[in-house]
C-alpha cells in the first residue's frame, strides 16, 4: 500500500488506456492488471461519432480512478488550459502534467513543466509531473507543490526500459519519502520488476501492454512482475560485486584429487 495525494493505492501498476485493439481488450487488460488507476486524455469530439462518450462510459464501468493527462501539450498555456478542462470533465484534481519539449524523444520541457506545475499546484490541482531523472528539476517540482514525481525510464513508447540507472537510483536516494512512479519506456515485465526492486513506488505502463500480441495476458505478467519487484525491494537485494563468491561452503570440502 502506498499513497498518492493521500489516496491509498494497493496496486503499484498504473495503466494507460491508449492504443488497445478494442474496448473489450482494454477492459480485459485493466482487469488482468489489477490496476486501480488508469490514465486518460481529452481530444476533439465529433458530434456524429461521439467516441468520447462511449469511451467515458466504458471507463466508468471499470471502477478505477482516472488520472487525466495533458499529452500533446507543448506550451505552459496549453497544458494549464487542458488541465482546467480535464478537471471539469473528469471531476478530479489529479492531473498527469506533460509539457513536451522535443518531438523525436517526447522529452519533457522541464522549464515549462516547472512553471505549469507551479500554476496548477497554486490552483489546488494534485500534479503528477512527467519529468526526467534530473535532481534539480525534481527539487523545483517539489518546491512548486508537487507531492508525486513521474520520472521517465526512457522515451515514451520506446520499450527501452530504465535508460539511466545511475540517475534513477540517485533520484530514489535523494527523495526517499516522495512517491516516485516510473512513467514511460517500460517494454517488458522485467523492466517493471527492476524499477520496483530499486525502490520506485510504482510504474505506469501503456504501450508495452496495449501493443502486446495478447494485451490482457501481458497486463497479468506486469502485475506479477511489479509484485515480485516490490517484494524483492522489501527483502533487501544483495549488492552486485565483480568477483565470484562461492555459494557452497568452502570449509569441509573433500580432498578428492
Amino acid at each position: 500500500m502506498f499513497t498518492l495525494y493521500d489516496v491509498p493505492v494497493r496496486s503499484r501498476l498504473l495503466l494507460g488506456t491508449a492504443r488497445y485493439p478494442s474496448p473489450m481488450i482494454l477492459t480485459e487488460a485493466v482487469q488482468a492488471s489489477g490496476t486501480e488507476v488508469v490514465t486518460v486524455s481529452l481530444r476533439r469530439e465529433a458530434a456524429g461519432e461521439r467516441a468520447g462518450q462511449a469511451f467515458w462510459s466504458l471507463v466508468r464501468e471499470l471502477g478505477v480512478r482516472v488520472l487525466p493527462n495533458t499529452a500533446g501539450c507543448h506550451t505552459v498555456k496549453e497544458a494549464v488550459t487542458t488541465a482546467h478542462m480535464a478537471r471539469e470533465v473528469f471531476g478530479t484534481r489529479w492531473v498527469k502534467l506533460e509539457v513536451i519539449g522535443e518531438e523525436d524523444t517526447l522529452q519533457p520541457d522541464v522549464f515549462g513543466l516547472v512553471e505549469a506545475a507551479r500554476i496548477l499546484c497554486a490552483e489546488e490541482f494534485e500534479v503528477f509531473p512527467y519529468t526526467t531523472e534530473d535532481l534539480t528539476v525534481a527539487e523545483r517540482l517539489l518546491a512548486a507543490g508537487c507531492r508525486v514525481l513521474m520520472p521517465w525510464g526512457s522515451p515514451i513508447g520506446s520499450g527501452h526500459g530504465l535508460n539511466n540507472l545511475f540517475g534513477l537510483k540517485a533520484l530514489r536516494a535523494r527523495f526517499a519519502q516522495v512517491p516516485l512512479i516510473i512513467d514511460a519506456g517500460i517494454g517488458v515485465p522485467s523492466h517493471a520488476a527492476q524499477a520496483l526492486e530499486l525502490g520506485f513506488d510504482a510504474v505506469l505502463i501503456n504501450t508495452a501492454v496495449s501493443q502486446a500480441a495478447d494485451p490482457a495476458r501481458m497486463a497479468g505478467a506486469f502485475a506479477q512482475a511489479v509484485a515480485a519487484g516490490r517484494e524483492a525491494f522489501l527483502a533487501g537485494p544483495i549488492e552486485p560485486r565483480d568477483m565470484a563468491v562461492p555459494s557452497s561452503p568452502v570449509v569441509g570440502t573433500a580432498l578428492l584429487s
Binding site: 486524455s41 468520447g52 499529452a71
Partner: peptide, 24 residues
C-alpha cells in the same frame, strides 16, 4: 460549463469541444 450560456460567440471564433479519450 456554467459559463457557456453567457459566453457570446463572434464571427471567426475558434471553438474547441473536447471529450474523454484514451490516453497514456
Amino acid at each position: 460549463a456554467p459559463e457557456r450560456a453567457t459566453a457570446t460567440l463572434a464571427e471567426g471564433d475558434r471553438v474547441e469541444i473536447l471529450a474523454p479519450m484514451q490516453g497514456g
